[in-house]
Design a protein around this nucleic acid. Sequence first.
RNA 1: GCGCCCGUAGCUCAGCUGGAUAGAGCGCCUGCCUCCGGAGCAGGAGGUCACAGGUUCGAAUCCUGUCGGGCGCACCA
Length: 570
Amino acid sequence: MKRFADEIRAAIAAATGIDAAAVRLEKPRDIAMGDFAFPCFVLAKELKQAPPAIAADLAGKLNEDFSNIQAVATGPYLNFKVEVAALSQAVVEGAIAGGNQYGQSDEGAGRRVVIDFSSPNIAKPMHVGHLRSTILGASLHRMHALLGYEPVGINHIGDWGSQFGKLVAAIARWGDTVDIDADPIPALLKLYVRFHDEAEGDPTLEEEARTAFRELESGVEGDVRETWRKITELSLAEFNKTYERLGVEFDLVRGEAWYEDKLTSTLDRIEASGVTEESDGATIVDLTSIRKKMAPCLLKKTDGTTLYATRDMAALFSRHDEFDFHRLLWVVGSDQNLHFEQLKGVLKRMELPWEPACEHVSFGMMRLPEGKLSTRAGKVVFLGDVLDRAVEEARRTIAEKNPDLANAELVAEQVGVGAIVFNDLKRERIKDVVFKWDEVLSFEGETGPYAQYTFARMQSILRKAKASGEEAATTGAAPDWSALEDARGVILCLGRYPDAIRTAAAEAEPSHLTQFILNLCRETNSWYANHRVLGEAPELTAARLALVEAASSVVRAGLTMLGVPAPQEM
RNA sequence: GCGCCCGUAGCUCAGCUGGAUAGAGCGCCUGCCUCCGGAGCAGGAGGUCACAGGUUCGAAUCCUGUCGGGCGCACCA
């Protein structure tokens, strides 16, 4: 596919004298018009000619040199159509050969991309709001790997802060009223909520919490540190169960606590660059030179202790020093837009050249129809419950539509979890989401199960072909590539997959890929509703089988990038 | 109050970074299984791209303002 585009670009460049890399080819409005379009407006000024005249002129010139591409001028546009056999064979064979690695490239060779994602807080259950960061980050990790980058996925666990003092104090008081070992997270949450309820009427509680956190901060080994460590381990074990269901892995799990002993050197580093100043007794970095009215970055409190921003600066320097990244992606919600703008602002003021490499991959907030999520107030939907209910729904659908399915339980898990993941990666990440059960549990239309179903049906055809010995290799018939004109839409779509991956990774926007998959599924479903694959003339069946193999392979490859499983049957 | 983001069909969203007649899904209406899986396919109704200006050959897309919604705004994380 790319090679045809390159040939067209080169030809236009040669005929007009403009740079081949600057020739932007578009997708024609209607597939009947062609495979690529070149709007001639851009040349009008330079050539002092009307766009339609340029198009007509160029069409004549270019057609003299093309062998299997035809250029047609339609008004101000120059449309190109590749001869069907050449196009089909190149795209279909390329897609099949690529397999799950289709679209891979070496653009990222020798370049490291650090991706900070998921980052749950210890001792609290993961809720639907944690889903977005987790699966956005995981899919960006996979896509960058495909493009040849060396991704480093980091789970920056929230395991530090005064709330752990509260938790330790609560455990000391009421630890024996709950069974922490049996089901740790709900038990810890209960204690945490109780602390807040009772602290209002009991000031000694707050004091106990402060004392506990001071001890924790001091670094001494003792009961407090022991309790904190236990909470962390139990929580991580719980999180890992969820990560496993979602197919998410990290290269490094490193909590905020890890940066505790690097705070002084971090402050020294920033102060040494001369960008800090005193303000009301606190140490800040003024950022009004970065953007008018931007709030300053607060690095040290009046009492000399550090803050969230200080810890994140420490983490940031550590990422840079340790990984020497080409790109750093913070996959964190849009409620922290200012925070990350401030971190970047500090880097800018320090005049560090790698500042532009740091990107806040911001995403919209998850809300409930009745308002903001709040774990403490009980206004929350837990992630585990969402996955469970989706799997339950999948189980029910399977029982109804395919009761004899082998591995029904495994497939139900794949379909249910896949539906949740796909749904969340469907829209542009910046958009806020209102959580609605009937929406996430829907398996029809633009959903994960729709894509999985498309894949399963194509696999079914391939299985039948194998069983009846009609596979191309078995019969020895050479595919008649010229017979795939009626599948041009599918083929063009397949050819655009590498671009979809590249764009999705470059913009840190997996929804581009999700939308691509939906498009491809629509095209293929529409095509094979009207065309038979098996039982046609051998050359025709061979070509259509190859197409089905390519299409199913690309659907699977795309779903794999998103972290959505593709079962053979469902 | 100030800052950042969002506003496209009844609802949920695409729209290739300024190009041709603005597209899907859900819901509603109508067709399609003696034929490779109906979690599907085909068709219909449904639009002042929030509103008003501007930029230019051309604007849903860029700029300004207004309205509506979300988030944030120093010693929490």
